[in-house]
Write a protein that binds this DNA or RNA. Structure first.
Length: 491
RNA sequence: CGGGGUGUAGCGCAGCCCGGUUAGCGCACCUGCUUUGGGAGCAGGGGGUCGUGAGUUCGAAUCUCACCACCCCGACCA
């Protein structure tokens, strides 16, 4: 197989797609806009899930499951919500098929039309809040801190593997609170969980911020997000946390009696991250040789490749390799020994690089003789020869180093491509020619935001939290502004 | 839904303009031998309703029409 992933400069989208497909993560399915997540890709997702799940549980949440189908009437209770999602819903209208009378095949049985259509959930606020109504009467029933792992469907016009598929996997948290402050606190706490996960596990530096009104979740009072920069300078919204106020409680009539004996509507939050994080992983860290998986999320952290000429040698090497594998597994690493006789070492090297396995150990006749292994790290491709003794310590420190290095690299890239700009000409030049994040003043109106979007394709990604106040003039209209916001072209 | 493009073996493509043996190439696949410390070499082999349907013609991958699918760019979006 020849090296082919060299298209990135010419067509980043194609480079990304190739990488996802060739690294064995996913492929397009027979269903338009939907993807097949392959075993290797899914195992990375499982690692993400497991870690996020731990973090949610550590912050007091529990998992539950709500229906895939949402009656159409539920969906229209919250005006802004329905407006935001109506254009991309899959709708179930019938419940039965039949053979066509002329024998030409299976057709929908028109006699089996549903009285009320069912929407395949694009998000579950409505079905969940309809359920919460029955669960909540008193402040003693609050808070409810529930998360759900599920698939959802949004009938997007244009799709891209992991980043925007018609069906995707995610987790959605839906919490109910007695007070506004508590709900806001929850929203921000989850944002912190997302940021910590992105930075410590995905090795992806993110900016926490607040969305502008036009980018806000349909039905939310406030939307917080984490924003990351991909290697083409575009922004990827990698997770969102919404303060929903009492909007859904009002829409679904979810009231409770507070400690003072007064009846009030319940305060809500919702938050989610999706398989889009897989896309972030690919785009933030990948290179022309393939993926680079952060060690803390790698399904295989260490791969051992034998190098031999005769079958007898293979047996000797296998003895050594198996012993090493056992030792490393005992130390808590996930290790694969690839003793396939059907592929040559060079092929395997390239294959595991494509898959982004952080560390490769090669063991050959020389190593048998010297009691060594050759260790190669995926991120920098550096190799060194190690004695077999004390391998655990070296692996541990190497994996930690890789985790940190790829984070540092991504952070350095983001900083290098972040600008502070005060005039529109420079702004346009950077957005059009360089890409990246631009901190600029904005007058705070949706009109100006829309104008800038039309003129440059850039949008306000977020208003960073803890943003320093600074007097300035909107770069488009010259009207006064009190802080800079982040503009970028987004995925 | 607007603009552009592509459908030929599992993947990537040539052939089409100018119709004419048995439709070809690279990778992959299978067999054998030699190889194995960075995607092996040689020899042999298998695999095709040329997207679908109609039309023109003695003859269509090639020309005409319709349809379908997919990709890219836009609008929308996690």
């Amino acid at each position: 197989m020849a090296k082919e992933l060299t298209t990135r400069k010419e067509n980043y989208a194609q480079w990304y797609n190739d990488l996802v497909i060739k690294a064995d993560l996913a492929e397009n399915s027979a269903v338009r806009g939907c993807m097949v997540i392959k075993p290797y890709g899914y195992s990375i997702w499982e690692k993400m899930q497991a870690q996020l799940d731990r973090m949610f549980k550590a912050t007091g949440h529990v998992n539950a499951y709500f229906p895939l189908f949402i009656p159409k009437s539920f969906f229209s209770r919250e005006a802004a919500h329905v407006e935001g999602f109506a254009k991309e819903c899959a709708v179930v209208t019938h419940y039965r098929l039949k053979n066509h009378p002329d024998g030409s095949g299976i057709v929908v049985d028109e006699d089996a039309r549903l009285e009320e259509e069912l929407i395949v959930r694009p998000t579950s606020e409505t079905i969940i809040w309809n359920t919460y109504r029955n669960w909540i009467q008193s402040y003693r029933d609050l808070p409810i801190l529930i998360n759900q792992w599920a698939n959802i469907v949004r009938w997007e016009m244009r799709t891209r593997l992991f980043l925007r598929t018609a069906e995707f996997l995610w987790q959605e948290g839906h919490t109910a609170h007695a007070t506004m402050d508590e709900a806001i606190e929850e929203t921000q706490m989850i944002l912190k969980v997302y940021a910590d996960f992105a930075e410590q596990y995905l090795a992806l530096p993110v900016i926490r911020g607040v969305k502008t009104e036009s980018e806000r979740f349909a039905g939310a009072v406030q939307t917080y997000s984490i924003e990351a920069m991909m290697q083409d300078g575009k922004a990827l919204q990698s997770g969102t946390s919404h303060f929903l106020g009492q909007n859904f409680a009002r829409a679904f009539d979810v009231k409770f009696t507070n400690q003072q004996g007064q009846i009030d509507y319940v305060w809500a939050t919702s938050w989610g991250v999706s398989t889009r994080l897989m896309g972030a992983l690919v785009m933030a860290h990948g290179d022309d040789d393939g993926l680079i998986i952060p060690p803390r999320l790698a399904p295989i952290q260490v791969v051992i490749v034998p190098i031999y000429t005769k079958t007898a040698q293979l047996k000797q090497i296998t003895d050594v390799a198996t012993a090493i594998k056992t030792r490393l597994e005992k130390a808590g690493f996930s290790v694969k020994y690839d003793a396939r006789d059907t592929h040559k070492p060079g092929y395997k090297f390239a294959e595991y690089e494509l898959k982004g396995v952080p560390v490769r150990l090669a063991i050959g006749p020389r190593d048998l003789e010297n009691h060594t292994v050759e260790a190669a790290r995926r991120d920098t491709k550096e190799k060194q020869v190690w004695p077999v003794d004390s391998l655990e310590k070296r692996i541990e420190s190497l994996l930690n180093d890789i985790q940190q290095s790829i984070y540092n690299k991504a952070l350095a890239f983001r900083e290098k491509n972040t600008y502070r700009v005060d005039d529109y000409k420079t702004f346009r030049d950077i957005i059009e020619n360089k890409g990246g994040f631009v901190y600029a003043h904005w007058d705070g109106t949706a009109e100006t935001e829309q104008l800038i979007k039309e003129e440059t394709k850039a949008t306000v990604r977020c208003i960073p939290i803890d943003n320093p106040k600074e007097e300035g003039k909107c770069i488009r209209t010259g009207k006064p502004s009190r802080e800079r916001v982040i503009f970028a072209i987004a995925y």
